[in-house]
Design a protein around this nucleic acid. Structure first.
Lengths: 136, 136
DNA sequence: AGTATGTTTGGTTAATTAGCTAATTATATA
DNA sequence: TATATAATTAGCTAATTAACCAAACATACT
């Protein structure tokens, strides 16, 4: 039960952004993803992905787990009050072109180790400088 | 089925704003409300309420009906794919202090005719100039 | 027809936010 | 202990958005 409308707004704002919806969609089908994998999927600066992720964690939608230098994110399944909206989103997202493209991209990303992924990202200043990678 | 993530984002953005969530909450318990009643509830300029309402109509969440000079808004119950999220929102909003306050305010607003409500609103330039009214 | 009036649209401003780079923090390894 | 490195935070800029007022539009009434 949410006593404050603001808590609900935190959740809603956390999912009403294209990149954050893409993160959620990715995690709906992959359980756990590293920050660097999400960075690679979105093709944004690592700091930007981190901002999105912490916003979603803050809203209670995601949880994270530290494993050495890597941090893995997953959907917060402990809060069962989120179940209905997650189910609704899953249904609404099914068939979306963006989701299909992301699924493809993710499968390629998952073939690369986090070490290699991060090394690649270190080499790039930002995604906007068109370089070939697992995603391009 | 939403083929474009953008359609879903339209819906999500339409409900991830405090004033729009208040509109939705009001319509979840009152079926149909006039633009001037919503303006009075939110205590914003008529133009501002109108903007919020048209955004929600555009997202497919609300429908409107013209009755003479008045325009009545209601939740779009024809799109049954919205049912799950409306139900979830209803549940999440239950007990919220803002919703309770709004419910009180609405009951007072509904005692006044739209004519009187609009006359009152015409007298005010904006809500910020503290005048006594059905809501204050 | 002309006037009154509820709502919407145009135009502006202030606040919010998503993105970047650079600096910092936290962890692993030489 | 020093270095390397994944992720976060700080600080900035550009884009978006919510609010206002004023003007336009649409409907009702004289």
């Amino acid at each position: 039960m949410v006593l404050f409308m603001n808590d609900l707004l935190l959740i809603l704002k956390a999912i009403s952004d294209k990149n954050r919806l893409r993160i959620l969609s990715a995690l709906l089908s992959h359980q756990e993803l590293c920050a660097c994998q999400i960075t690679e999927l979105l093709q944004v600066a690592g700091a930007t992905a981190s901002r999105h992720l912490s916003l979603m964690v803050n809203a209670g939608i995601l949880k994270n787990r530290k494993n050495g230098r890597w941090i893995y994110f997953r959907i917060n399944t402990e809060d069962i009050s989120l179940d209905p909206i997650l189910k609704w989103l899953t249904h609404k997202l099914k068939g979306s072109g963006q989701v299909i493209k992301d699924e493809d991209a993710l499968n390629k990303i998952l073939l690369v180790s986090c070490e290699d992924l991060c090394r690649k990202q270190r080499g790039e200043t930002t995604c906007s400088k068109n370089q070939t990678g697992v995603n391009g």
